[in-house]
Design a binder for these strands. Sequence first.
DNA 1: CTCAATGCAAATCCTTTGCATACCT
DNA 2: AGGTATGCAAAGGATTTGCATTGAG
Lengths: 146, 146
Amino acid sequence: MKKSKFGELLKTVGLKKTKHRLLLLDLLHQHDEFLSADDLFLRAKAIDDSISLSTVYRILDSFIECEIVSPVSLDDQKQLFYELKHEEHAHHLICTRCHKVIHVHSCPVHDFEEEIQLEHHFHVEKHKLEFYGVCEECMENEKETV
Amino acid sequence: MKKSKFGELLKTVGLKKTKHRLLLLDLLHQHDEFLSADDLFLRAKAIDDSISLSTVYRILDSFIECEIVSPVSLDDQKQLFYELKHEEHAHHLICTRCHKVIHVHSCPVHDFEEEIQLEHHFHVEKHKLEFYGVCEECMENEKETV
DNA sequence: CTCAATGCAAATCCTTTGCATACCT
DNA sequence: AGGTATGCAAAGGATTTGCATTGAG
């Protein structure tokens, strides 16, 4: 999605086009890691000093409400992270060393969902699949250090 | 695992056997939902009024440290939840209505991990797979109400 | 007896809210 | 103009910490 499209995106979901919302969309789009509200606030403030942390929270809430952003919680962190929703269904490889996030679009789980419906009489609405481990660069770095 | 085994479990991991630790292990073992620190505190306090919330947090931290409990975060809740680690690898069906948790022991993901190693040069250490949806009872209830 | 575990209260971190003002449509 | 978005400061909720006391080994 091109940066210039964000204005339209906001219109589509029925949110007013403000500089702060555009800025946050841009930041979310640029960064492929998970970002916390505070990460976003600091990066936004570096570009536009007038933004406040509560605005960041309020904007993120409105984005979640409109389903253009997903909140992501990681088991070992108490704060929430946020990411732009991808058009495609995706899963994540999360590096436990550098916290980089790699998106994977193939998904081995859909068939399994049917099994679950049948076996457990549980109606699956969505699933979440994440892999935790070490990314290529961190693996290189660890080799060198040892 | 029988209740009487918890004392040994504590010895095995090198933690002193105190009544509060035994009580929390017992509560975690009894309940198949995810429990928050506060859930545990309230249930524990009902049994032994002398326990304090900070003790619950400290005990949970020690259990996580010793790897007998896992912290679990859910995207739409800001507090952490806790569950006893199961001997078996397991995944969860989480009811978005009543928050019940069903454990599923089959896992469709292991082959996929190899693909990831090859394709993304990412060394997978563990994965997390959760299904969100509606359990059988809640489905029944919704039918009736509609 | 000795050190780790605990209770209590205060502190901290993350997030939300109230209210007056500024900004989009 | 009219109502939403924002800044600021204060409140709230979850978790952590300091310190004196209790309890397990």
